[in-house]
Computed example of a mutant assay.
Amino acid sequence: MERALPQSVLRETTDRALFDEVVGRERVTRAELAAATGFSKPTVSESVRRLTDGGLLAATGPQETGRRGRVGTFYELGATAGWVLAVEVDQSGVHAWAADLAGRVRHRHDRPPGGAGDTRALVDALRAVVTSALATPPAGPLRAVAVSMANPVHPTTHEVIALSGTPFPEGLVSPADVLADLVTAPVLVDNDVNLAALAEQGSVGAASFAYVYVGAGLGLGLYLGDRLVRGAHGLAGEIGYLPGAGPGTLAAELAADGFGRSDAPSNDVTAVLKALDDDDPRALAVLVAAVTRVVGSVTAVVDPEVVLLGGPVGTHPTLLAPVRDAVAALSPSPARVEHGTLGVLAPLHGATRLALDHAVRAAITGLP
């Protein structure tokens, strides 16, 4: 015999479903909410009351609904419901945007990168970006900060993991510690490629897909059965450490082929993109071979429905067609190879989604 869910869980589930419906529709009446969700009108009325009393929703007053003789009260996201901050920290610098609880971006903040390996400069840039965001906040409380890091993150401790040969050595810091005296909201941390895959998951239309990131480093985000695979130690998807064609790693092989920076253990994204823009056949051939090896390995092992190419290099338009052709000749899997839909902003979108989910869930749990 199945046990009934606790009343508090049912209430929170209802409140979240109705909140999401209001945010998705922007303005809606209780009658429309009942019709859209299937909840009874008394259940909708009680939930909307809780959400309104808690400041998450606001009544805009009686207005014509568009149906003859009908006047209803419309509800929308509360003006002071709060906001979240999404931050991306990688070799290109520190980038952030503030968004309301509907995910609408209100302000953008950026700081350029420091020198390779200059952890102090990166910490200063991270603090400066957050300080700037706090100086011009959207209305309401800051409810969560989500930080995308270009290094692996432990799935349990949420600490950045130090790996030998990391392409982002200056990023071996704890964002929660760096920001502890600036924000009281929870600081959530995850790997940039995982967050990019999280962001793409909403539009990919597949329960199982792989997201291959090609930029300053190489990474893989893997969704299987609608679940993100992080691995026991947070190291799933560290494809730069795969064996190359020779004795070294795949990342080392790309560096040896002329793509590495002279001052850091990472790919020189600017130089690689220029080579692709200039239709350099050698550069294209080397990159296609490397990406094909990754995609062929992933499709052979886990057989995803779709493989997305992402990152500043992975999204270059000249890369997709030859990778498709090479994978089709190499792999028995019928997986589709596509570009990600969010481009280089995918990690920021993923951080926003992570922050929003935490913020809304916590706010609804705390409703009286």
Rank of each mutant, 00 (worst) to 15 (best):
M1S: 13
P6T: 06
S8K: 12
L10A: 13
E21N: 04
V28I: 15
T29N: 05
S40I: 02
K41F: 15
R50T: 06
L51M: 08
A58F: 11
Q63G: 08
T65I: 06
G69R: 04
V71F: 11
A79K: 14
T80E: 15
A86E: 08
A86F: 12
D90R: 03
G93D: 07
R104A: 12
V105Y: 08
R106N: 04
R108Q: 11
R111E: 07
R111W: 12
A116N: 01
L126C: 08
L126Q: 12
V130M: 02
A133Y: 01
P138S: 06
L142Y: 03
V145W: 02
A146I: 05
A150W: 14
P155C: 01
H158L: 12
L163M: 11
G165W: 10
G171K: 07
V173A: 00
L182A: 02
V183Q: 03
A185P: 00
D190L: 00
N194H: 13
A199N: 04
A199I: 05
Y213A: 15
G219F: 02
G219R: 03
L220Q: 00
L222Y: 00
D226C: 10
Y241K: 01
L242V: 00
G244D: 07
G246V: 04
L254K: 01
G258R: 02
F259P: 06
G260K: 02
R261Y: 08
N267T: 15
V269N: 07
V269M: 00
T270G: 11
A275M: 06
L276R: 07
D277K: 05
D277L: 10
D278F: 11
D279Y: 03
L284Y: 04
L284V: 04
L284D: 00
A285E: 10
A285I: 09
V286G: 04
R293D: 09
V294L: 11
G296C: 04
T299E: 01
V302H: 08
L308C: 08
P312Q: 00
T318V: 12
P322W: 02
A326K: 01
S333Y: 09
S333D: 04
R336W: 10
H339M: 14
H339F: 12
V344A: 15
L348T: 08
H349P: 06
G350A: 12
T365E: 10
L367K: 00
